[in-house]
Amino acid sequence: MKRLIISLVMVALIIAFSISNTVTLYNVRGELNEHLNNMAQKLEGGEAQDVVEDTQQFQQLWLDREEKLVRFIRHTDLEQITWDCARLPYLAKYGDMAELTAEINRIQLQINHLWETQVPRIRTVF
């Protein structure tokens, strides 16, 4: 009986942590995508000067959110996004708008890929 209770508590803890991590990733994904979409819209609208500051803010935002994600996501996936985010301010500062737009899209794809691979589903669990 004692083993059954311990097993049930452990399963409940695993499920609770999984739900918590999924909610965290969902919120971070939404926040980051919103910021990236705003930068992409500014680039399309010809507001390149505003994007320089936005890229710096996004880089800091990513570093803050990465600290939350590093608890339950593989470091290599997060490091790739960190490296790509480090390029954004320099691409914006030196006026390479085509490359900046491509990099923004690439980061969005990586963030969405994190969501797809980390959400507990039958195909990702087994």
Results as ranks from 00 to 15, higher is better:
residue 81 I to D: 05
residue 5 I to L: 10
residue 90 Y to H: 03
residue 80 Q to A: 15
residue 6 I to T: 09
residue 30 G to K: 06
residue 51 V to C: 09
residue 95 G to H: 10
residue 89 P to L: 05
residue 55 T to A: 08
residue 80 Q to R: 12
residue 42 K to W: 10
residue 69 L to K: 05
residue 63 L to P: 00
residue 89 P to N: 05
residue 84 D to F: 13
residue 10 M to E: 07
residue 18 S to N: 13
residue 54 D to R: 02
residue 21 N to S: 11
residue 107 I to Q: 05
residue 103 E to K: 06
residue 62 W to E: 06
residue 112 N to K: 12
residue 42 K to H: 10
residue 105 N to T: 12
residue 53 E to T: 15
residue 102 A to Y: 05
residue 106 R to D: 09
residue 126 F to R: 14
residue 63 L to F: 03
residue 114 L to Q: 06
residue 122 I to F: 11
residue 88 L to D: 02
residue 125 V to M: 15
residue 124 T to Q: 15
residue 94 Y to N: 11
residue 66 E to P: 00
residue 18 S to D: 12
residue 70 V to W: 00
residue 27 N to P: 02
residue 69 L to M: 14
residue 55 T to Y: 01
residue 36 L to S: 02
residue 13 L to W: 05
residue 18 S to W: 07
residue 32 L to M: 11
residue 104 I to G: 04
residue 28 V to M: 04
residue 38 N to T: 10
residue 43 L to D: 02
residue 8 L to E: 08
residue 1 M to P: 00
residue 11 V to Q: 01
residue 24 T to D: 11
residue 27 N to V: 15
residue 124 T to F: 15
residue 98 A to M: 05
residue 81 I to L: 03
residue 56 Q to F: 00
residue 17 F to G: 15
residue 78 L to I: 07
residue 83 W to P: 07
residue 91 L to T: 02
residue 54 D to I: 02
residue 88 L to G: 05
residue 96 D to R: 09
residue 62 W to M: 12
residue 53 E to Y: 02
residue 10 M to I: 15
residue 58 F to R: 06
residue 39 M to N: 03
residue 8 L to T: 05
residue 102 A to T: 14
residue 124 T to V: 15
residue 91 L to M: 06
residue 75 H to I: 10
residue 41 Q to Y: 15
residue 98 A to Y: 06
residue 11 V to S: 11
residue 99 E to K: 07
residue 74 R to T: 04
residue 87 R to Q: 15
residue 124 T to H: 15
residue 44 E to M: 14
residue 85 C to D: 04
residue 37 N to V: 12
residue 68 K to R: 03
residue 125 V to P: 01
residue 30 G to W: 05
residue 10 M to T: 13
residue 57 Q to E: 11
residue 122 I to W: 12
residue 27 N to L: 13
residue 30 G to Y: 06
residue 34 E to G: 14
residue 13 L to D: 00
residue 116 E to F: 06
residue 80 Q to I: 14
residue 8 L to M: 09
residue 30 G to N: 13
residue 8 L to S: 13
residue 121 R to P: 03
residue 68 K to T: 04
residue 16 A to V: 09
residue 91 L to D: 03
residue 12 A to S: 14
residue 120 P to R: 01
residue 41 Q to F: 10
residue 86 A to W: 01
residue 56 Q to H: 01
residue 52 V to M: 03
residue 53 E to L: 08
residue 72 F to N: 03
residue 38 N to A: 13
residue 21 N to Y: 09
residue 56 Q to T: 07
residue 83 W to N: 14
residue 64 D to L: 06
residue 86 A to E: 15
residue 124 T to C: 09
residue 73 I to M: 01
residue 8 L to K: 04
residue 55 T to W: 02
residue 93 K to F: 02
residue 47 E to V: 05
residue 97 M to T: 14
residue 55 T to E: 02
residue 66 E to N: 12
residue 93 K to I: 00
